Simulated assay, not measured.
Amino acid sequence: MPASRVETANVVEAADGGFGVYVHWPFCLSKCPYCDFNSHVVANVDQRAWAHALGRELAHMRSLTGPRAVSSIFFGGGTPSLMDVATVDAVLSQIAALWSVDGDVEISLEANPTSVEADRFRGYRAAGVNRLSLGVQSLDDRQLKFLGRLHTADEALAAIGLAREIFPRLSFDLIYARPGQTADEWSRELRAALAHAADHLSLYQLTIEEGTAFARLYEKGAFKLPEEDDAAALYRLTGDICAEAGLSAYEVSNYARPQAECRHNLVYWRYGDYAGVGPGAHGRLTTGNGRIATSTLKAPGAWIAAVEKDGHGIEVMDDVTRSEQGDEMMMMGLRLDEGVSLARYERLTGHAPVADRVDGLVRDGFLTRNGDIIKATPEGRLVLNGVLGRLLS
């Protein structure tokens, strides 16, 4: 890593999207068959060693960013609810020591709803976590088994109830468009979930990711996913049911009551800056030399060894060109209901999007335009990759 990047890192104003810190905890009790995240099943973890290593890498990130105001912190994984409370507390204390932390900072932690992990909830809250994201995935025991989850529907509901008592904000995830799932079945399950939801739901269609157990089973014909038209119908149904309950689709797969959007994910989608620490974490940082992309070593053993040796586990640190910044901003921002500023795109890239392409997508019903802002329509969200291909080619 060139030393000049550290030496010339300047104090920068918060980017349009703010500044967040992502902490990756790569360990799980088991590997879900649909999951392609950087997660590893490890029986015993030296929590003190990991807290120390995360703290060292955070300090290195501070040398790259200079002084910043942290608006959000997110513990993701893996299964962060396997972290000791003391580990979470140590990481949060280090972040506060390195940067200024907004008084209303959002601190999220992903958790699995098993009874053992739920017992930690009060400790996490005392450490500063104010938003819990529960990996529920389904409220049907048969489907939970298919998805490889270790909890039951009753355990999930108990964890939701406990979390609602302890944390000011709560979100949980569900996976739909599962094999054989009908619109009536999904409607009943989603309405049941909404009866327990606090303010936010993340609702993902089941996809087959390369290298997963589901990918191998799918290739063998062990199960089928809904046809494209059926999946699109389920997506529309999801939006309608959530809207009835007062949760708007502020992003393609995320639904929230007003002011309850996940602020950390908005940092990503609004193309803000974020420091990513832990194995396989990614970051986008503005330094004195421009915008850089960072990624750390994925293997936990290799990452912690690198941190012990060099103070960080960064494997790749690349400059992000102006053109790449514009493309990234557009790809992230069109996922949001609030849309994308064409003026900001021009500031990043030095040129405006081709007007004929924008006009054509508006004419075809895939985008809307209101002055400076373009947004994907509901139909555009269904084919967002194609919209981006036409817009940015």
Results as ranks from 00 to 15, higher is better:
Leu234Pro: 00
Leu234Arg: 10
Ile208Cys: 08
Gly239Met: 06
Ala222Cys: 10
Asp230Lys: 12
Thr207Pro: 02
Leu206Lys: 09
Ile241Ala: 07
Cys242Pro: 02
Gly211Ser: 11
Ala232Lys: 03
Pro226Asn: 03
Thr212Gly: 04
Gly239Cys: 11
Asp240Lys: 15
Gly239Arg: 02
Phe214Asp: 01
Phe214Pro: 02
Thr207Leu: 01
Lys220Tyr: 00
Ala233Phe: 05
Phe214Trp: 07
Thr207Ala: 12
Ala233Arg: 14
Ala215Leu: 09
Cys242Trp: 09
Glu227Thr: 06
Leu234Ser: 10
Lys220Asp: 13
Ala232Cys: 09
Lys220Gln: 15
Gly221Asp: 10
Ile208Tyr: 04
Ile208His: 03
Phe223Lys: 02
Arg236Glu: 14
Glu219Phe: 00
Asp240Ser: 15
Thr212Lys: 06
Ala232Arg: 13
Gly221His: 11
Arg216Glu: 14
Asp229Lys: 13
Lys224Cys: 10
Asp229Ser: 14
Ala231Pro: 05
Lys224Met: 11
Pro226Asp: 02
Leu225Cys: 04
Ala232Gln: 09
Asp229Trp: 07
Glu219Asp: 14
Gly239Pro: 05
Ala232Trp: 02
Ala231Gln: 12
Thr212Arg: 04
Phe214Glu: 03
Gly239Tyr: 05
Gly211Tyr: 02
Thr238Glu: 07
Ala232Ile: 11
Ala215Tyr: 06
Leu206Asp: 04
Thr212Ile: 05
Gly239Ala: 12
Gly221Met: 12
Asp230Ile: 12
Pro226Lys: 05
Leu225Ala: 02
Pro226Phe: 05
Ala231Cys: 07
Glu209Ser: 12
Ile241Asp: 07
Glu227Asn: 06
Leu206Ala: 06
Ala231Lys: 08
Cys242Gly: 06
Ala233Val: 08
Thr212His: 10
Ile208Gln: 08
Lys224Phe: 01
Glu210His: 13
Leu206Ile: 08
Tyr218Glu: 13
Gly211Ala: 10
Ala222Tyr: 02
Glu219Cys: 00
Glu228Tyr: 00
Leu234Trp: 01
Asp230Val: 15
Leu217Trp: 15
Thr238Ala: 09
Asp240Gly: 09
Glu210Arg: 15
Ala213Pro: 00
Tyr235Cys: 01
Lys220Asn: 09
Phe214Val: 06
Thr212Pro: 10
Phe214His: 06
Leu237Arg: 13
Leu237Asp: 02
Ile241Cys: 06
Tyr235Trp: 15
Glu228Thr: 13
Glu227His: 13
Leu217Asn: 10
Arg236Trp: 11
Glu219Met: 00
Gly211His: 11
Phe214Leu: 03
Lys224Ser: 15
Leu234Lys: 05
Asp230Phe: 07
Glu210Trp: 04
Gly211Lys: 07
Ile208Glu: 09
Ala213Gly: 12
Ala222Asp: 14
Thr238Asn: 05
Glu228Met: 07
Ala231Met: 09
Leu206Thr: 06
Ile208Thr: 10
Leu237Ser: 02
Arg216Asn: 02
Gly211Cys: 08
Leu217Ser: 15
Ala213Trp: 00
Arg216Asp: 12
Thr207Trp: 02
Glu209Phe: 07
Glu209Arg: 11
Phe214Met: 12
Lys224Gln: 14
Leu225Phe: 05
Lys224Tyr: 00
Glu228Gly: 01
Asp229Ile: 10
Thr207Val: 13
Ile208Leu: 08
Leu217Asp: 15
Asp240Ile: 11
Asp229Glu: 15
Ile208Met: 08
Thr212Phe: 01
Glu228His: 09
Glu210Thr: 14
Cys242Tyr: 03
Glu209Pro: 09
Lys220Leu: 14
Ile241Arg: 04
